[in-house]
């Protein structure tokens, strides 16, 4: 049983977002990069499944330039066994999924975060499953391995659904899949030095989308405080100014 966890390299969630002069690209200067939070939770769950037994190895994979290697090495430090970096600048979901399809064939379970916290595309997991022609389940909040098959839990309106799926399987995971991401221990950081990080060349794939431009959201209006015993004024403001009543 082998697990592959797809890792996006994203700006720290507290990053102040700026764009280049022509508004066509994200300004990466001074940005601190982290493992995409959903992917980090996927990795945490993968480690838990491995610790419960029956899993041979966990591989982490990323499509990115050499600058993303610290993110992969952190994944190795928290417990992944090896890492693959496909040497390419990620362009769009189709491009990334196509690159990953080269290396994702031999895994029993592939885990992908529901979206990356930078572009929020939410496309790679489903596309990759289609390219590999394997089962996929989305919006997954629980996955466990029982007698060689996977029991997958997904959140649906007003409850949750349990699905039993055989390998190979791709799960697109969301909040709830694991509690907290793990912090690497010194021992893990030391061991990460020796774990393999294989770099493979990008496949010749054309991106299918183009970023035309970005816009910042409008600044939030100032907050108006209404005295707690002045409900009439609150209703008037909601009616006349906010026009929501």
């Amino acid at each position: 049983m082998k697990i592959l966890v797809l890792i996006s390299n994203v700006p720290d969630t507290t990053t102040k977002i700026r764009f280049t002069g022509d508004n066509k690209a994200f300004d990466t200067s001074g940005v601190q990069w982290i493992i995409n939070p959903w992917d980090e939770l996927a990795l945490t769950r993968a480690l838990e499944i491995k610790e419960a037994g029956g899993v041979e190895s966990i591989t982490v994979a990323n499509v990115g330039t050499a600058a993303t290697e610290p993110t992969l090495r952190k994944a190795l430090a928290v417990g992944a066994d090896d890492a693959i970096r496909i040497d390419a600048e990620p362009k769009d979901a189709f491009y990334v999924a196509s690159q990953l399809a080269q290396i994702a064939k031999d895994y029993d379970l592939i885990m992908s975060g529901i979206e990356s916290s930078d572009y929020n595309g939410a496309g790679v997991g489903g596309m990759l499953a289609a390219m590999l022609d394997i089962h996929s389940v989305s919006a997954v909040s629980g996955v466990s391995l029982e007698n060689g098959a996977f029991t997958v839990q997904r959140d649906i309106d007003g409850g949750n659904q349990k699905v039993s799926v055989s390998a190979p399987l791709l799960v697109v995971v969301q909040k709830g899949i694991a509690k907290d991401p793990r912090i690497p221990a010194m021992r893990g950081i030391m061991m990460a030095r020796k774990k393999p990080l294989n770099v493979i060349p990008a496949a010749a794939v054309e991106a299918r989308t183009e970023f035309l431009g970005y816009e910042m959201p409008e600044a939030k209006a100032a907050c108006k405080m209404v005295d707690e015993d002045n409900a009439k004024e609150l209703i008037r403001l909601l009616h006349e100014e906010a026009k929501v009543l």
């Binding site: 290697e69 610290p70 090495r73 430090a77 912090i183 950081i189 030095r193």
Partner: peptide, 18 residues
């Protein structure tokens, strides 16, 4: 180094989270 930054981040995560 990358390792020094990883340790700094690990300490930060533990402090800010726990």
């Amino acid at each position: 180094t990358e390792e020094q930054l990883m340790i700094q981040q690990a300490a930060r995560d533990y402090a800010q989270r726990e």
